[in-house]
Amino acid sequence: MTVVEFINVTKSYRTHTVLKEINFTIKQGVLTGIIGRNGVGKTTLMKLIVGFIEETSGKVEVFSEKPFNNLKVSANSILVDDGMNFPYPMTVTDVLKECNRFYVNWDAKLAERLVNYFGFHPDARHSQLSKGKKSTLNAIIGIAARCPLTIFDEPTTGMDSSVRKDFYRALLKDYLAHPRTILLSSHHIEEIEDLLEDVLLVHEGIAHFHGSITELQEMFITLTGKKEKLALHTNGKTVFSTNNLGPYSEWIIQNKCTQKELEQMKLDGIAIASVSANDAYIALTDRPKGGIDDVFE
């Protein structure tokens, strides 16, 4: 069953267009990572889904309904981001109480245990928490609300690394126990790639890639060896990224070589390795053969 559907969705602001006729669908129960460079429209996309903003053209459907000004969508979805604020005088306890009234699936016990675990004082005011603590509390709310559509936009901003780890672990455990549709964005793909089933790569306003994380990881291979040998073996193939490591070079090409080609490369001292999701993402979003090094040439 489809939970989110975008059909030719464009979102423009006065000065620029962020999303350009983007198309994709998110199926129920899938944990999808939304990745892309800064300012490509990941946040815009998420805000369209929960109805905070309205599409300029095209069709956005969530639970088969238009989300903008839609009570059903609002009641069954939650967007956790750093814009999630609560009134100045409200304490951590107050905020959790309000959540309990608004979200029917709210797990008060889990929320309380998480708040204790992460060391919140129940009477601390939300507005006076540090950035990292605010992110942590918002993330707890996102987990405990158990909304059929749960969205986290850069949820770990300001969290220290041990809290990040704990949060992702908590999210996974709760997802296993209560499967639901989750969208998760992060700058650090390597941090979330293990958690993801699918990846939606937003680039230049469109869905540049949408598929399983393993598909993304197997899309490319890394060849490491001497530059001349690499050039010889990759003749006629598109090189997506090059990186110099001392005397050796690391080139990323599409994983479309025959077994024979691979064996010959190995004979020539070229090491072949799989590509991390992050490198694959960089390869997909870089112009071929263009990197920071080329700026200095």
């Binding site: 393993t214 291979i221 072949i272 390795a273």
Partner: peptide, 12 residues
């Protein structure tokens, strides 16, 4: 299957 010297995909 692809022969890998480096890290393998998790499912493998």
């Amino acid at each position: 299957m692809l022969e890998v010297d480096g890290t393998k995909p998790i499912y493998i």
